[in-house]
Amino acid sequence: MKKKLSEITRDEWIGINWIEDSEMGQGERCFVADGLRTPAEAYQAREEWDATAEERMLCVAMVKA
């Protein structure tokens, strides 16, 4: 199953390893799930999620506009 970035929850982002599966011309980045993140990746993903919160919201707003 493919998910748009805006549809992925915080828990999913931290726990799951995502492979980008966006198509050319697609408004929003898409990902497919690929197993669990390693412990080190999960820790980093958690920080990344908060650090990019503003950027994600901007992307969603741009797509909706």
Partner: peptide, 11 residues
């Protein structure tokens, strides 16, 4: 496994 559980829950 936990991994199988997580991926099934997601899909």
């Amino acid at each position: 496994s936990e991994e199988t559980r997580t991926i099934n829950r997601f899909h």
